[in-house]
Design a protein around this nucleic acid. Structure first.
Lengths: 218, 218
DNA sequence: ATTTAAATTAAACTTTCATTTAAATTTCCG
DNA sequence: CGGAAATTTAAATGAAAGTTTAATTTAAAT
């Protein structure tokens, strides 16, 4: 049986195109979207190229290898977001509640601009052999998680942290309360028929939970 | 240059082995560990076979295909844990705090037995094209998340849920507060030098945060 | 206008993967 | 003990992956 070329796909001939867009930036954006959708390791260079409408060879032309494309994504897409988040947190007040609120708002603002963020975080940083784990330790963790832990640690020493809470674990809880619901938004919206709940409502809920908790069991 | 057989690897010859262990169960355990470490899509049948000390052909002998191995892992490894968790939650009282506490304790107990659980959850259920997403909707979500949402919904109607909290989002927050810190345990222990904090301390912290929150900003 | 540099593709190469097949070895049942 | 069924491997096959190379087209520089 012969393959039927139902769509006579017009493949471009080789050669520099007339008015070329910035393919390098476009490849970075496409790659980050593919990483978020399928995971870094499961994303082939061919997939990224196809999604960007180019050939795999172009990926290597701009980045040299699959590995260095990931490195460029970290440097040019992930790190700017992290730096901006650090500034937001650093500008918050001293009280744990204020720092936590600034973090929650900062994450929500970042995700509104960069929807790929939570998915990549939970897949590639959180898990055992995540593709961004080392990048996280070396470049991200000194900027945000350590800063948060210092603030909460100082608050505990001045008695401003409620009894029973570990300042380091407050950082962990905060990340879990923000990235996790944002990463799974499409899941719980579908599951609970909660299409009425937008991210702003989620943010209000999270801040309310952080303020007062659920109360004590009877 | 000739390959040097430094370790004269003793490859077994074909044939049924003398006293065979249960390779099928062993392959299921190995697969679930590989899934947790590298992610489902990034795990090749060869990787699982090598980790289990057998050849890839044996994977197909027992499961027919890579895809049906995943299906068997869901049915025979994941689902029993989910069913047990549902019983724990169903046996809790009516108050939101009691239900939440039962869930947190149930998750911690399950993870103590099955360390692969949080990693697989955040990677394969939470994210956009996660390999277990459909299995979650069809088989897991009716058992646990829906049950939780019903309890919290009832609590809100009887006024037992604090102001500002959405009963459906309480479920999401709960999962984020448990699976996320457990999945990332090796990260934050290393990051904060918190090797003194065991999972029991984490559980106490989480329950304390759920009880009282962080307090209001000044 | 001519030359040089940049951007892009097609095609080829090598590796890795999932799967199939045939053979080998052992257990189980009569 | 002897044959049928079960379990395992080596080897082969075909598809997909990452990368390299050479060719081709356009833009930029002189």
């Amino acid at each position: 049986m012969a393959a039927i070329p139902s769509k006579p796909r017009k493949r471009r001939k080789p050669g520099r195109p007339a008015r070329s867009q910035n393919q390098r930036e476009h490849l970075l954006d496409t790659a980050v979207a593919c990483y978020a959708r399928d995971g870094v390791t499961a994303t082939s260079a061919r997939t990224i190229a196809a999604a960007a409408g180019v050939t795999p060879a172009l990926v290597n032309y701009y980045f040299g290898s699959k590995e260095r494309l990931l490195e460029a994504v970290v440097q040019e897409r992930l790190m700017p977001v992290v730096l901006s988040l650090r500034d937001t947190v650093a500008a918050a007040g001293e009280s744990p509640a204020a720092v936590a609120a600034a973090f929650v708002r900062g994450i929500h603002a970042a995700v509104a601009r960069h929807p790929w963020l939570p998915s990549i975080w939970v897949r590639e940083i959180l898990t055992e052999n995540g593709a961004l784990r080392e990048a996280f330790f070396e470049r991200v963790s000194p900027l945000v998680p350590r800063l948060l832990a210092e603030r909460f640690g100082a608050a505990r020493q001045s008695g401003a942290l409620p009894e029973g809470l570990d300042p380091r674990l407050v950082v962990v809880s905060l990340i879990g309360l923000t990235f996790f619901p944002l990463a799974g938004a499409s899941i719980w919206r579908r599951l609970f028929d909660a299409h009425d709940v937008d991210n702003e409502a989620l943010q209000r809920h999270t801040l309310a939970l952080l303020r007062q908790g659920l109360g004590a069991p009877p």
